[in-house]
Amino acid sequence: MAGTEEREAAFYAIIDADGRIEPRDDMPEAYRRTLVRQIAQHAHSEIIGMQPEGNWISRAPSLRRKAILLAKVQDEAGHGLYLYAAAETLGVSRDQLLELLHARKQKYSSIFNYPTLTWADVGAIGWLVDGAAITNQVPLTRCSYGPYARAMVRICKEESFHQRQGFEALLTLTRGTPAQKAMAQDALDRWWYPSLAMFGPPDTGEQASGGHTEQSMRWGIKRFTNDELRQRFVDMTVPQSQVLGLTIPDPDLRWNEERGHYDFTPPDYDELFRVIKGDGPCNAQRLAHRVAAHEDGAWVREAAAAYAAKKQEVAA
């Protein structure tokens, strides 16, 4: 049995060689805890994220759009499944993680605490929210923890498909009737800043995230800082908004030749912190919905477990 120092050295040797840590490898407890927290938060975001979009399945304005939306929400449930499975390789079960979510001890992306008020919001979520998610997640395909990195490869492929579908849905609206175009602009007006806030607090200044980024970068979990990713998202999205013919609600948005990037107004981080703490438009609703689904389904899960146990008894 190797000593603690030797085991830590072996861990950092893998990290420094840009290798992958696998479930059976030794890892520092803080690394494991950070990953569990991050993967759980990601899994919870997938399943809570089913609600704002699922909100429009029954009302989708054409059968084709209904099919696309159903398939998308189904993919999100599937992403939740892979991510909970990735977390299980770190020794925590899906049930334990769901309990923590339901008890408000783990979080999910604050973006899903905003309401989907019109059909255009479904397109805006695909375009902006999935676009921001991809910007965050593509680097995670190179994350140092193997099972998470591999789950992200598959998830990113599907997210990128969703993002194109969202863009296409909005494009159809912006080329449609004046009412449809207004619906699309209104959705962009409401989703722009919350999407920018998806990258988390700024890297510097009073509101900076206290040290998480630096540690996660050392561990190869995170590859870029919040502000780097936010900038990348803005640079990617502005030209797309021009194709759509929509106006990003930021009077200070302009190309900065010197930096080679767009300058933009940052989101309201005080609002972000409020929503993270539970004070967003839909926090209570989303969690209550999730807890109700879980509680209403308890008798079904118990029946399935009892049935499986009976079958096992017969087989034994």
Partner: peptide, 17 residues
């Protein structure tokens, strides 16, 4: 479609969708 995001377990959200 009404079951999506309210099924008894995640596998059933996938199956019913």
């Amino acid at each position: 479609g009404e079951w999506v995001a309210r099924a008894p377990e995640l596998e059933e959200d996938v199956a019913l969708a």
